[in-house]
Simulated assay, not measured.
Amino acid sequence: MAKLQPVQFSSAPGVILNGSLFLPEGPPRRTIALNGATGVPHGYYARFAAWLCEREQAVVMTYDYRDFGDSAGGSLRSSRATMAQWGAGDQSAAADFLLETYPELPFWVIGHSLGGLFVPFYAQAEKVQRVIAVASGPAHWTRHPLKFLPTVLFFWWIAGPLSTVLLGYTPGRRLGLGFDLPKGVFWQWRRWCLSMGFYRADWGGVLPQPRFEAVRCPVTLVSVSDDVMLPPKAVAQLQNFYPHAAVDHRTITPKSIGARQIGHIRVFSERNAAAWPAILAVG
């Protein structure tokens, strides 16, 4: 059984992130950073992380991005966090922590949605030995199913901007996003999702220049057939962000795991645990 241990690490001067380490009973074979989706606290992944720890005999780390969840430090209205800081900053810091704490072990990244987008921005990207990106890709409103378009356009153009301006943060709980978000995260997320280039416009500015050539490990893209937020065709676009890697794309269907539905978030819920081996499978 996995042993649970609280963990803290620094992402930037004055920025401390909190999370959990799942430690196997015997000597670990590898380390895995489990990067969460936007608005999803790290505790949501605990069951999957414990299963992953036992299955892979791995040290697995979950954590919350700055000014969110267990890493929240003050008023959400005063937060200056951005999505670029969550991805290029906090995810890279999580990788650094595991690589420096366990330098002798192979290092993997498993990212959910936002968590699978930023490996080329990591300071030590060349040390990542496998990437598994689940329901992750450059979202754009044209890549959603037609039935979901009214919802997504209402969110990006009316509900999201109006509530964020009025409240000083994005009320994710009320808008069905999970948890509340810093306003800077919302505005940058909106900018990227309304641009066909996604975050390319910010390279070399608020985002550092990506080092595509550093990521040459196997990359597995996992899509979910009934995911309306990141449907398979959007996930497929992520292969363009890993041009030097060997990329495998597979799709999990509800029928394949005996479920009625899975969706964007619940692929990591315990009720859909039958999907977990498919996430790890080597194509």
Rank of each mutant, 00 (worst) to 15 (best):
V228Y: 06
G258K: 12
L238E: 03
A236S: 09
D227Y: 05
Y242I: 04
T253S: 14
S225V: 07
S223Y: 00
T251R: 11
T253Q: 09
A234P: 01
V228W: 07
V222H: 00
Y242A: 02
D227A: 08
V228D: 09
I252W: 01
S223Q: 04
T220N: 14
H244S: 14
V224R: 04
R250H: 07
V219E: 03
R250W: 03
S225T: 11
A234M: 07
P254N: 08
T253L: 09
R250I: 10
L221M: 10
V224I: 15
H249D: 09
Y242D: 00
T253E: 09
P231D: 01
S256K: 12
A234C: 11
P231C: 04
I257C: 13
A245C: 08
A259F: 04
F241C: 08
V247W: 07
P254Y: 01
V228S: 09
S256P: 08
R260P: 15
K233L: 10
A236G: 08
P232G: 06
P243S: 04
V222M: 06
L221C: 10
P231I: 03
A234R: 00
T220V: 14
P232F: 00
K233G: 09
H244P: 13
V228M: 11
D226W: 01
K233C: 11
N240D: 13
N240R: 13
P243Q: 03
I257H: 09
R250S: 09
R250G: 06
P254V: 06
V219F: 02
A234T: 07
D248E: 13
D227H: 08
V219S: 03
V224G: 06
P254S: 07
Y242W: 08
P254T: 06
L238W: 03
V247M: 11
H249R: 14
A259M: 08
H249T: 12
A234Q: 03
K255L: 14
P243L: 03
Q237V: 10
P243Y: 01
N240W: 08
A234D: 02
H249E: 12
A234I: 03
T253N: 10
V219H: 02
A259D: 06
D248V: 12
N240A: 13
D227N: 11
V228P: 06
H244Y: 15
F241P: 00
V224A: 07
M229I: 15
K233W: 00
D248S: 14
V235P: 00
A245M: 05
I252E: 03
Y242P: 01
A259W: 03
H249F: 06
T251M: 10
D227Q: 10
T251Y: 04
G258S: 14
F241W: 11
D248Q: 14
S225E: 12
D227E: 10
T251C: 14
P232V: 04
L221Y: 02
V247H: 09
A245T: 05
V224L: 14
S223N: 06
